[in-house]
């Protein structure tokens, strides 16, 4: 009982169903799988499928960036750029334009973080297409992204406006609690939006794959295009765009 409520509060433990009880835990393919359990002192550390998928995504990103770095470093200005260099330049230019369109002259300070966030979330969302369980369908992955944004918002706000940052929060004095709650809701809504979208896609894909064999011939392909590629790209764009909007709101003139 108390376990259940604890797990409900902490949604990343969708894996809970497979760890405890066991009597009523049907193993759905879209649930987080528990792979290994460590006991350190009184606490248990669970290695779940999220960790493995996250590791695979990170290693893929590292390998790609190392290859691109090598090629770009070797390139001469007089040479014709190759395929990989062309693609890399296109991506960097696109991300630069995206950040510039909403941050203006502050672009240089934030373009690295926003680009990293965009590419990381995009790869995480698309990984469902390659048989992994999308890591962003775990609330333990998306909440830190929201918290990083929250810390950045207030760091930039305090750095820019000093104490005025706090006095702005109680502008109409009566509305101070509502303003504070509004500030605290930013990371939660930011992370829950990404989590909810990718989670719903993962659950629906799992349900589609549970249909009878002769139905699952062409339907999963169409569903993958919508839930993984379209929804994943939109959500990666939205989370990086909202991060920029919130930060610009604080450091703007």
């Amino acid at each position: 009982m108390e376990n259940g409520i604890l797990y409900a509060g902490y949604m990343s433990s969708m894996c809970a169903a497979s760890t405890n009880a066991g009597s009523d835990s049907e193993d759905f393919s879209f649930m987080i799988k528990l792979l290994k359990e460590f006991k350190i002192g009184g606490t248990t550390l669970n290695i779940t499928s999220t960790h493995i998928c996250l590791l695979i995504v990170t290693i893929t990103l590292l390998v790609v960036s190392v290859i691109v770095n090598r090629i770009v470093k070797k390139a001469n200005a007089s040479d014709t750029p190759g395929t990989i260099q062309n693609i890399a330049e296109m991506v960097v230019e696109m991300l630069n334009n995206m950040v510039y369109s909403s941050m203006g002259k502050e672009t240089k300070r934030f373009v690295n973080y926003i680009s990293t966030l965009f590419i990381f979330v995009l790869f995480c969302n698309i990984s469902g297409l390659f048989g992994l369980r999308a890591p962003t369908a775990d609330y333990g992955v998306t909440l830190p992204l929201g918290v990083i944004t929250f810390v950045m918002i207030h760091y930039c706000g305090i750095k820019k406006n000093k104490m005025k940052h706090f006095s702005d929060m109680c502008k109409p004095v009566l509305l101070t609690p509502i303003n504070v709650i509004g500030e605290l809701a930013v990371p939660i809504s930011l992370s829950l939006r990404l989590f909810g979208n990718i989670m719903s896609g993962t659950v629906l894909m799992g349900l589609i794959y549970m249909l009878p064999r002769y139905v699952t011939v062409g339907i999963p392909a169409v569903a993958h295009v919508y839930f993984d590629i379209f929804s994943g790209c939109i959500q990666a764009y939205v989370i990086s765009m909202l991060t920029m909007v919130y930060i610009t709101d604080k450091i703007g003139d």
Binding site: G4, Y7, M11, M14, S101, R193, N197
Partner: peptide, 29 residues
Amino acid sequence: STMLLGQAVAETTGLYGLAVAIILMFVKP
């Protein structure tokens, strides 16, 4: 881009409902 941003913000309340439904169905509190 403005439309997508606005739609994403409007989607939030629906996702709260989805989170409640998923918890009721699979986490079994």
